[in-house]
Design a protein around this nucleic acid. Sequence first.
DNA 1: TGCCAGGCCGGGT
DNA 2: ACCCGGCATGGC
Length: 216
Amino acid sequence: MAALTTIYQRLLKRFGPQYWWPAQSPFEMMVGAILTQATNWRNVERAVDGLRRAGALKPQALLALRGDRLERLVHPTGYFRQKATRLRVFTRWFMSRFGGNPARMFREPHEGLRRELLAVDGVGQETADSILLYAGAKPVFVVDAYTMRVLRRHRLSGARATYEQVQRFITDALPQDPALYNEFHALLVAVGKHFCHRRSPDCTRCPLGELPHTSR
DNA sequence: TGCCAGGCCGGGT
DNA sequence: ACCCGGCATGGC
């Protein structure tokens, strides 16, 4: 079976570097991480652009928005009431815990920081790990729906594998390198977007096609 | 037209 | 420890 590093190299050759996370600041990245939950990235871009035009991509500015204004700004991402609330809850935590200062936040060891993030309402494992890797450059691998599907369909993980199991499988097989984790996860999303959807899996032209795969 | 998108939470088994 | 329903808009 092909090692993960082989898959990584194959994907990099096929898709090229992905330059993740597409954000201009750590706070913008963290906002995007919440907005992209179960949502097309296209819609997130619209919302982030709106927030930028409103000058709300700074913690205190976001918190100064009226509730209904914030809801309208995040409206294109769906779940707009939940997400407006989650953004405010997260930002309040970020302000009170770290003074809204990302450098101070990521000075923390990532294990403890992960636990704190998970305690924030609206931040689950993927969102927490995304923030640690893509805003904080911590050596934490992000597992998402595409990661699960791609690995499953190529029989690199079991059908019932959990988030933690997949995460450990990957981090145990690769050097502990944030830049590598960054690129690999982004590439898994790229290949997933092209070839690995929930239904009607078109794995035949997948760059990993030499590997055996199932339709789930 | 329906199905899906870079999840998370709370309640039930 | 899972499993499910709710949350909601925009694109192809």
